[in-house]
């Protein structure tokens, strides 16, 4: 990354101009990223209701958090959501990417698969709220037509998390597939030719060539999607608002509720710090386990 260019004499020190050029970005970075990060951590040690100045209260928020059953429940719900969401999405995206690679590389196909990603989570949530409606939704109409019992997708405790996970899979799977597809392009075609010469079948080549060579890309995709998945909020806010009971109260929704519903910004900040720590640890573990930095190609 460090490209040190050899100084070649005249007018080579641009320090003043450079500072001028980075100034707007630097202000944006410090004011809206660095400072809020520091402040978020500070607020987690205070009692703060937004109207009066924050009062330092030591570890109170953290002690409360450890003893708060709703917090633990929301963490459990979030982890459950992430597992369902990531498992389905990654497997499906991998299959789609490989199919696209083997069938046709035309843009229209990738465009069609990517279309859901172009709309917001809110739009996705709205349309599936309608499609999965218990009485009138076309989804349940079809289920009833083939003789099964209608499913209360978003209003039963058992179905709500898998359903929200599926809605988000619908929106994101094309994007994930395209990332993996891009990774597939880096595998030399000669590998497959050699495989074919040796009489290897497509499934065999998938296992012995595609998967090992794709590992670094898959690792990156997993880190990105898992971190994103932990931050689920929009779909829950639009479809269930955490219900029924607390069965879809994901962590981020609980944090929002504590901050804007009860104006306990200190406690909400403490939970944000907890989420941040969870994300850092998960990223670190994934990075180590999947050895994202090394490739088997070479």
């Amino acid at each position: 990354m460090a490209t040190t260019t050899a100084p070649t004499g005249r007018r080579r020190d641009d320090t003043r101009l450079a500072l001028l050029f980075i100034l707007p970005a630097l202000i944006g970075f410090v004011v809206f990223m660095v400072w809020p990060t520091v402040r978020g951590i500070y607020l987690s040690f205070t009692k703060f209701n937004l109207l009066t100045p924050p009062e330092f209260n030591g570890l109170d928020n953290y002690i409360r958090m450890v003893q708060d059953p709703v917090f633990w429940n929301s963490l459990r719900v979030t982890v459950y959501y992430v597992i369902v969401n990531i498992a389905l999405q990654t497997i499906l995206a991998l299959v789609i990417a490989v199919m696209m690679q083997r069938l046709t590389r035309r843009t229209w196909l990738r465009g069609a698969v990517l279309t859901p990603y172009l709309v917001s989570n809110v739009v996705a949530a709205m349309v599936f709220l309608w499609i999965l409606d218990y009485q009138l939704g076309i989804g349940n109409t079809l289920i009833a037509a083939i003789g099964l019992d209608r499913i209360a997708f978003l209003s039963s405790e058992a179905w709500v998390i898998p359903t929200i996970a599926l809605i988000n899979v619908w929106r994101h799977v094309g994007y994930t597939a395209l990332l993996i597809f891009a990774g597939l392009q880096t595998i030399p075609e000669t590998m497959y030719e050699a495989g074919r010469m040796d009489g290897a079948s497509e499934p065999r080549m998938f296992r012995s060539i595609t998967v090992p060579l794709l590992r670094p890309v898959l690792a990156l995709v997993l880190i990105i999607t898992v971190v994103g998945s932990f931050q689920v909020f929009d779909t829950v806010a639009v479809t269930t608002r955490g219900g029924p009971v607390d069965s879809s109260r994901v962590l981020q929704y609980y944090i929002y509720d504590v901050a804007f519903g009860r104006f306990q910004f200190g406690y909400a900040s403490a939970m944000s710090v907890a989420l941040l720590l969870v994300l850092v640890v998960i990223t670190f573990i994934q990075y180590r386990v999947t050895r994202a930095e090394t490739s088997d190609l070479n």
């Binding site: 970075f29 004011v31 809206f32 990223m33 660095v34 400072w35 809020p36 990060t37 402040r39 978020g40 607020l43 937004l50 971190v227 931050q231 909020f233 981020q252 944090i255 901050a259 910004f265 909400a268 900040s269 944000s272 710090v273 989420l275 941040l276 994300l279």
Partner: peptide
């Protein structure tokens, strides 16, 4: 800055915007 999840800065940024 790429390491900071967007979600973490939302609450403090709201306080700032306020």
């Amino acid at each position: 800055g790429l390491m900071i999840p967007a979600i973490f800065t939302l609450l403090p940024n709201f306080v700032l915007i306020k």
